[in-house]
C-alpha cells in the first residue's frame, strides 16, 4: 500500500466513525495533534490537584475532608488515564513530564488562579469541573480509541466532583450573611476564567476545523461554552446567587443566553505564563518530582535485585 492508500483508508474510517487504534496508520499531524491535546489534558488533571490540595488540611469537617481527598485522588487518576492514552501514540511519560516542567507543554489556565477561601472548593467543583465535564462528555466520542475510552472512564467519575462542589455552595448559601458573601465573591472570581476554559472563540481557533474534520473534536469551543452557560445560569438561580455578567440575558430567538465579552487579553496573558500562580504551580510540581527521584530509583534498583536473585534461585533449582 502507498501512503495515499493509507490516507484514504484512514479518511474512510473517520467518515464511518470507526475508531482509530494505536497500531493503525495515521497521518503525522493527527498523531501530533493528539499528543499535544491529550498530554495537555493530562497535565491539567495533575496541576489541577494543586489549587484544591491547598484546602485539604483546612476542610471544615471530616466529611468535607474525605470528599475533597477522594476528588483530588480522582484527578490524579484522570491524569494517569490520559498519560497512558498519550503513551500509545509513541511519546514517553518522562518526555511529557519534561515538557510540562520546562513550560513547553501547556495546561488549562484555570489552575493558575489562587484558591483564597473555602467557598472556592465549591465554585471549582461546580464551575470548573462543570466546564470540564461539558468538554469531556463531547470527547467520549472522539476518534482516537484510547482517548475516547479514557474519557468515558473520567466522565463516570466527574459527576460526583460537580455535585459535591454545588453542595458546598448550596449549604453555604443557606448560612450566615458572611457565608453568603463568600459564595458570591467566589462565583465572581471563578465565572469568567471558567468560560475561558473552552478556549478562544471559533474565529480565533485556527485548529478547530482540522480537529473537527478528524473528529478529535466533536463540537466547537463556542458551542460548548454556550451549552455550559445555558445550564449554569439555571443552576445559579437555585443557589440564589448572581453571575457577574450584566449582559447575561435569555435570547428567545436564539434559544440561548446572550453573554458579555470575555477578556481575552487576560486569557492570553495567563497562557503566556503571567497568571497569578503559573510559577508557583510548576515550581511545586518540579519540586515534588525531584524530591521523589530517589524513591523511583530505589524501587527500580530493588526490582533489578529481586530479578537477579530469582534468576539465581531458578538456576540452582535446575
Amino acid at each position: 500500500m502507498t501512503v495515499r492508500d493509507f490516507q484514504q483508508a484512514f479518511d474512510e474510517k473517520i467518515d464511518k466513525e470507526i475508531a482509530i487504534e494505536p497500531r493503525d496508520w495515521m497521518p503525522d499531524n493527527y498523531r501530533k495533534t493528539l499528543i499535544r491535546q491529550i498530554s495537555q489534558h493530562a497535565h491539567s488533571e495533575i496541576i489541577g490537584m494543586l489549587p484544591e490540595g491547598n484546602w485539604i488540611t483546612r476542610a471544615p469537617s471530616l466529611r468535607r475532608k474525605a470528599v475533597l481527598l477522594a476528588k483530588v485522588q480522582d484527578e490524579a487518576g484522570h491524569g494517569l488515564y490520559l498519560y497512558s492514552a498519550a503513551e500509545t501514540l509513541g511519546i514517553s511519560r518522562d518526555e511529557m513530564i519534561e515538557q510540562l516542567h520546562s513550560g513547553k507543554a501547556k495546561y488549562s489556565s484555570i489552575f493558575n488562579y489562587p484558591t483564597t477561601s473555602w467557598a472556592d472548593m465549591g465554585a471549582i467543583g461546580w464551575l470548573v469541573d462543570g466546564a470540564a465535564i461539558m468538554n469531556q462528555v463531547a470527547l467520549c466520542r472522539t476518534s482516537y480509541g484510547p482517548y475516547a475510552r479514557a474519557m468515558v472512564r473520567i466522565c463516570k467519575e466527574e459527576s460526583f466532583h460537580q455535585r459535591q462542589g454545588y453542595e458546598i455552595l448550596l449549604n453555604m448559601s443557606k448560612g450566615t450573611e458572611i457565608q453568603r458573601k463568600m459564595v458570591q465573591e467566589s462565583i465572581n472570581r471563578w465565572w469568567w476564567p471558567s468560560l475561558m476554559m473552552f478556549g478562544p472563540t471559533d474565529d480565533d481557533s485556527p485548529n478547530t476545523e482540522q480537529s473537527m474534520r478528524w473528529r478529535i473534536k466533536r463540537f466547537t469551543n463556542d458551542e460548548l461554552r454556550q451549552r455550559f452557560i445555558d445550564v449554569t445560569v439555571e443552576q445559579c438561580k437555585i443557589l440564589g446567587m448572581t453571575l457577574p455578567d450584566p449582559e447575561l440575558k435569555w435570547n428567545e430567538e436564539r434559544g440561548h443566553y446572550d453573554y458579555g465579552p470575555i477578556n481575552w487579553d487576560e486569557f492570553w496573558n495567563v497562557v503566556k505564563g503571567n497568571g497569578p500562580c503559573n510559577k508557583e504551580r510548576i515550581a511545586t510540581r518540579v519540586k515534588a518530582h525531584e524530591e521523589g527521584a530517589w524513591v523511583r530509583d530505589a524501587a527500580l534498583a530493588y526490582s533489578e535485585k529481586q530479578k537477579k536473585r530469582n534468576n539465581k534461585t531458578d538456576h540452582q533449582a535446575a
Binding site: 494517569l80 488515564y81 497512558s84 511519560r93 472512564r153 523511583r296 524501587a299 527500580l300 530493588y302 526490582s303
Partner: peptide, 9 residues
C-alpha cells in the same frame, strides 16, 4: 484491558 501504568515490578 483497561489501560496501562508504570511500575517497578
Amino acid at each position: 484491558h483497561v489501560g496501562s501504568l508504570h511500575a517497578a515490578d
